[in-house]
Nucleic acid binder design. Structure first.
Length: 277
DNA sequence: ATTGCCTGCGTGG
DNA sequence: CCACGCAGGCAAT
């Protein structure tokens, strides 16, 4: 029995591979192995939109339009979050250290990890007292990779499984009910350049996208777009640091560590949620 | 939409 | 230091 996300992903894959031939909704439905009726229900359930709307969100035209939009940046972050008047709640705050400040590879640090479900497939999360230090999607090809990365990146930390705790954290992060969500704190290490890039990503509003160049401009390094792309690719905390909201100037999506289909799914999902506001 | 050539810059040796 | 490679950009087609 395939999960909703697996079906959404295979639909995306099919659309992506056949975007030249403009497949009909019925064709896509049968590719996913569902009747038209259930296909429709799947999208209503998953993102609250119809398959047709779903298709429209995935076009390059739509992406370009989103890029042209001015209201991408949450300026309240730059203004320093003036208490009650903020327009958008910042669910994610960031605590960062440079490698220089943190030479010990996590000595004395206790990290708990585990798996949870998300609208984008199973996710691997690890967390310290100071915040979430990793969020990785689990791929079928290499399900061990997140744990291997964790051990490598924090080689001297005490690392233990705590499935219950991670399930709770996952429920909070991916809760569709914004009012139920509590503040999420992230704890990462990286070079100063990477940290600057990651902080910029936090300013992009859900449902919005921006280009690699716009991020480069925002950190006062207008010609560093490629270095920016590289830094974005090193983001250890998928979804929470929203690297999926950065695309190419042309409207093409660019790359994604967790697969281009997942990047599309994340964008459609957020676009669908934010259009209802 | 796809190709090919251009670029600057952070990173790791 | 220097060489390398990049989840990009851009112009030409």
């Amino acid at each position: 029995m395939a999960s909703d996300y697996e079906r959404v992903e295979s639909a995306i894959q099919f659309i992506h591979n056949h975007h030249n031939s403009q497949p009909s909704l019925a064709e896509i439905a049968s590719e996913v192995g569902l009747s038209n009726f259930h296909f429709h229900r799947l999208f209503r359930r998953w993102a609250g939109i119809t398959p047709k709307q779903f298709l429209q969100f995935l076009t390059v035209e739509h992406a370009k339009q989103m890029l042209a939009n001015n209201n991408l940046w949450d300026t309240s972050l730059e203004l320093g979050l003036s208490g009650t008047s903020r327009l958008h709640d910042h669910f994610v705050t960031l605590d960062a250290v440079t490698p220089g400040e943190f030479k010990t590879s996590g000595e004395g640090l206790h990290i708990e990890y585990g798996l949870c479900q998300s609208p984008f497939g199973p996710a691997f999360i690890s967390v310290t007292k100071r915040g979430i230090c990793q969020l990785a999607f689990v791929t079928q090809e290499n399900p061990q990779q997140p744990l291997d990365n964790l051990r490598e990146n924090w080689s001297k930390a005490k690392i233990t499984l705590n499935q219950k705790r991670i399930a709770d954290i996952g429920n909070n992060i991916f809760s569709s009910d914004d009012h139920r969500r509590t503040r999420i704190h992230v704890f990462v290490k990286g070079s100063n350049f990477k940290l600057n890039v990651w902080k910029s990503l936090l300013k992009i509003l859900p449902g919005a996208v921006c280009s690699y160049t716009q991020i480069a401009n925002s950190i006062q390094k207008p010609r560093a777009c490629r270095a920016v792309a590289n830094a974005i690719g090193c983001n250890p905390v998928a979804f929470l640091i929203p690297c999926h909201r950065v695309i190419r100037n042309t409207g093409a999506l660019g790359g994604y560590h967790w697969g281009i289909e997942r990047k599309m799914a994340l964008q459609v999902y957020e676009a669908a949620k934010s259009q209802n506001n």
